[in-house]
Amino acid sequence: MTASANGSHKPAHTKPAAKPGRKVRFKVKRCDGPGKISRWETFEVPIEPGSNVISCLQWIAAHPVTTEGVRTTPVVWDANCLEEVCGACTMVINGKVRQSCSALIDAYAPNPGDEITLEPMTKFPVIRDLWVDRSRAFKNLTRVRAWVPIDGTYNLGAGPRERPNDQAVRYVLSTCMTCGCCMEACPQFNIEPDEAAWDTSFAGAHAISQARLFNMHGTGAQLKGERLDALMGPGGITDCGNAQNCVKVCPKEIPLTESIAAVGRSATIHALAKWFTGP
């Protein structure tokens, strides 16, 4: 970024050279609130080297005038860390879900007049414009008891020792930021406005993967049976259709499909064990 920011030398990295000082057209799907009709608005945004979708939305917020010259309101969107670790700024960019902070304009629209479309995620209810309500994704973490049942916060010594290989697996699983990408891209995960139906609708790859994460932990395994029971009901592990889009769109490259298979194995064993030894 610094490399190209000053434009005075060759960028260290060879990429299709984007033209500095150009303008890019943003087509933004806007909606004033739940139940309101959506509309498209377009904005022409001047691009500086290193611009990303966030910096362009910030520019639009300060200059909310459409390409038709109509004054409008700043676009509403969700963002926080801008480093792709908080998961807030997920949206559908040119038809695909991802974080907008890491969507570099030079990669998306290298030429003057290029267009970028921004839409809210479709699997969660829209609050306004590009901001959606992802409560269901968090609710699903409760559903799979995604925690270690510790005995309280008093000083009781260290946790279980762990082999570095297991830590390496758990660490990657634990980088899930509940951003919603895997759910947005999943053909089996669909919008469910009725909160009462959340517990029986597909939990999504992230929740299954979190169940695996905590089943792998020495103390977390205490709740393994409960987690598997929750995932063996409607909307659980069996509702996965193996489209495997989740693993393709996961910004943290979490091996979600491996988690699904691993939980599938645990569920098979759990079911057999239950059947033969009984609850």
Binding site: W147, V148, I150, T153, N155, L156, G157, A158, G159, R161, E162, R163, P164, Q167, R170, Y171, S174, F214, H217, T219, G220
Partner: peptide
């Protein structure tokens, strides 16, 4: 650190598991 360890934070480990 011990408490966080008990909560399941995947702290990097040595080959012996510390």
């Amino acid at each position: 650190i011990d408490l966080l360890d008990r909560m399941g934070v995947p702290f990097n480990r040595t080959s012996e598991g510390y």
